[in-house]
Write a protein that binds this DNA or RNA. Structure first.
Length: 276
DNA sequence: GCGACAG
DNA sequence: ATCTTGTCGC
């Protein structure tokens, strides 16, 4: 009865933390996404044409600082081309899962689906069900070609677009090369470069969305849209660096937290005296 | 051993 | 994601 209970490997205590504390759950999640991936469509698969684009959704989740479970989820529907907000679903949520790089969908997608399903079943507002949803996170620009935008699109069966502010570096993609090419080739708003991996895969586009933007946004296919159509839609909806549906969802959810979040235990645990 | 790692 | 002031320009 010695104390060498886990000696399957000879030297396994020189790594960072534990050896992948999420290894089990990751394997499970990969299987789930592999299954969903069979339903993913990366060509134009919509009944409308661009000049019939009217209702566009944007989703985002904002977080409370120093707090791992309280957050605010928001679904915005904009009318194009007026850009008026015609529908808003916003409220606090309780996060249950951590952020694990490459697995953002599992942390956020259930809350996004709740909002979409609420709209789908709303007798008054279901007319505003968006024709396409812009997602704060990548689409196929992802280690397993299935980012949050893809995951949400398949579950909701709605066309989606992934919009990221930082890219995954995979398949030979490299942030320095991307920035160099971007700086060289993208001078005006609307200019973009394709992100082509070593394998020849076109993962996304780095888009100069606004004339004053130094950094690109990374636009990748989510579901049911070609990259070309995806980019055309993003360009139509961009007034600032971040496309308006996502920008509005972000602004609204941040405001909501600032105005409505009440800490349960204020940082006043020291003084219980001196009230007169 | 080292770098990368959406939000 | 969040922490933060100013600053440059239209």
């Amino acid at each position: 009865m010695a104390d060498n209970t886990n000696n399957n490997n000879i030297n396994n205590n020189n790594n960072k933390d534990e050896d992948d504390e999420f290894k089990e759950i990751k394997e499970e999640w990969i299987q789930i996404q592999n299954s969903l991936k069979q339903q993913l469509i990366l060509t134009d698969n919509v009944t409308w044409s661009l000049n019939e684009l009217r209702y566009i959704g944007g989703v985002d989740i904002s977080f409370v600082k120093d707090n791992n479970e309280d957050a605010c989820a928001c679904l915005i529907v904009l009318e194009y081309p007026s850009m008026n907000i015609v529908y808003k679903d916003i409220g606090f949520i309780k996060l249950t899962l951590p952020y694990i790089p490459g697995f953002l969908a599992f942390r956020e997608v259930t809350f996004l689906m709740e909002m979409i399903n609420r709209l789908k079943s709303d007798p008054v507002n279901s007319q505003y069900l968006p024709q396409v949803i812009l997602v704060d996170g990548n689409g196929i620009l992802h280690p397993r070609s299935f980012g949050l935008a893809c995951h949400l699109g398949v579950l909701a069966d709605i066309p989606t677009i992934g919009v990221g502010k930082t890219p995954f570096q995979q398949d030979g993609l490299n942030i320095k090369d991307i920035r160099d090419q971007f700086k060289k080739n993208c001078q005006n708003a609307g200019d973009f470069i394709h992100l082509v991996g070593t394998s020849g895969t076109i993962w996304a586009a780095a888009l100069k969305s606004h004339k004053d933007s130094t950094n690109p946004i990374y636009v990748s296919q989510g579901h049911k849209l070609s990259l070309e159509t995806t980019l055309n839609i993003v360009k139509l909806l961009t007034l600032y660096r971040v496309p308006e549906p996502i920008r509005q969802a972000d602004l609204q959810s941040r405001d909501y937290i600032r105005l409505n979040f009440k800490p349960t235990t204020p940082p006043n645990t020291t003084t219980t005296t001196a009230n007169k």
